[in-house]
Amino acid sequence: MPLHILAPMVVVGLIIAWGAMRFAGCSQDLRFTTVEDARLHWLRHRPGAKPRDIIVAADGRAALVEVGSGLWLLRSFGIDSVIHHLGAAQVITVKQGLTLTFPEYDDPKARLTLTPKECTIWQARINAHQQETRND
């Protein structure tokens, strides 16, 4: 098929598909409603690693999860979730909360919306964890 037909067809197709999904309400974010909810999401990623402690952010889009292997971030990713170990995270304070950057190419950054009080707690937890792993 000539490119001058294929290319516009693809572009139009992409726009229609995007519109259909917006219209069908497919653009919501996952929220962890409770600690238990966050725990279930965590266990989906790491079935063997029982959390010792979980704190869920007030906006429900992120949680700090402590397990045997250290401190992890569980965050909403579309209507799914992803996890990331916080050992090598760089923490930057921004107006709406914290921005975490990671060395991994497949998950380079997480923007967290946190209250000022949460910011202090989360930052302290992450720092303490990183200190601990350095001392090991």
């Binding site: 992409l14 999904m21 653009s27 579309g78």
Partner: peptide
Amino acid sequence: RYETRDAMTSLFMGV
């Protein structure tokens, strides 16, 4: 299930 960003990423990968 469909999620807009996930599906658009898949379509871009196809293109």
